[in-house]
């Protein structure tokens, strides 16, 4: 690994100042599980690395306030996976976080880092989309609240501006009882990058939110408000065309080593049906509000 400068600011303001001073040569270090790999293989050669972990305001405990759950910029997957609040209100997010890498990785990797890298295969993106997460940012020109659906552009590219820092994620508590489920497709059962990520949420009002990733440049969110998908009594024949339309946004790359496009598209449907079924069952069991 080549030399760089290391900064360990203690406030967001200080971090923003360093970001502003170094421009594109600055890189944010939270968990480091992607950054350090990139720096070691020479793909990323920063002039300064800004470590966020000493900024107290970014690492507050996960807690519910004002009708939402706040995740900090340095909140790691292991915290998300085990947080009683996440398990209670956003179980599919806990499932997704629990699938990321190994325990060692989940002890370091942050959920904010996961979305800022904008990998189409990011496990936490589909549940965050389904739950309507809002990304909180700070920059010299002020703070923003960005619906997560407006964050992703394509692999490695987001709508974040130069000098802008993600300080956290807000998850609005579901107002209606909701059942949700996360699922993924991999090459082995052990840790693996997903060739499909998929999350479904159905609520009491019959709205179905479906999000899927790893089958296009960015994760996709689609919503069905007809009530048919969420209806446990509706026949498969009625659901199939709706699901089909919702999955039409998938365009998996033919260059992928992990799975061919044909298989991915077929599995999207299989996993979509299964996750929908699980979400409906969970709603019925009252597993989540």
């Amino acid at each position: 690994m080549q030399a760089f400068q290391y900064a360990r600011p203690e406030s967001v303001a200080e971090a923003l100042a360093i970001l502003a001073a170094h421009g594109p040569g600055a890189r944010i270090l939270a968990g480091g599980t992607d950054l350090v790999i990139g720096m070691r293989n020479g793909e990323i050669r920063p002039t300064v690395v800004i470590d966020l972990k000493r900024i107290a305001e970014l690492s507050a405990a996960l807690q519910v306030e004002d009708g939402h759950l706040r995740l900090g910029a340095t909140t790691v997957m292991r915290q998300v996976e085990r947080s009683p609040e996440v398990l209670r209100y956003f179980p599919a997010l806990a499932e997704a976080a629990g699938w990321v890498g190994s325990v060692q990785i989940r002890n370091r990797a942050t959920i904010v880092g996961n979305i800022c890298n904008a990998s189409p295969a990011a496990d936490t993106a589909p549940p965050l989309l389904v739950y309507g997460a809002v990304v909180l940012t700070a920059s010299p020109s002020g703070e923003r609240r960005l619906p997560i659906d407006d964050l992703f552009v394509r692999s490695g590219v987001t709508t974040l501006q130069p000098g802008e820092l993600v300080t956290g994620i807000d998850l609005p508590l579901p107002v209606k009882p909701m059942g949700s489920a996360y699922t993924r497709l991999t090459r082995r059962r052990g840790t693996d990058l997903a060739s499909i990520t998929l999350c479904v949420g159905v609520d009491e009002a019959g709205v179905t939110r479906l999000s899927y990733g790893s089958v296009g440049p960015r994760p996709v969110l689609v919503v069905d408000e007809t009530g048919t998908l969420a209806d446990p009594q509706a026949p498969d024949a009625a659901k199939a065309p709706i699901l089909e339309e919702m999955l039409a946004g998938a365009s998996p790359s033919p260059r992928s080593m992990r799975a061919g496009p044909e298989y991915r598209l077929a599995m999207l449907r299989v996993l979509g049906r299964r996750a929908l079924q699980t979400a409906i069952e969970r709603l019925a069991k009252g597993m989540a509000r």
């Binding site: 290391y6 270090l29 480091g32 350090v36 972990k53 325990v103 060692q104 990785i105 370091r108």
Partner: peptide, 11 residues
Amino acid sequence: TVNSCLMLAVE
């Protein structure tokens, strides 16, 4: 547990 290959010593 952490992978010490992915953590800078300064961290």
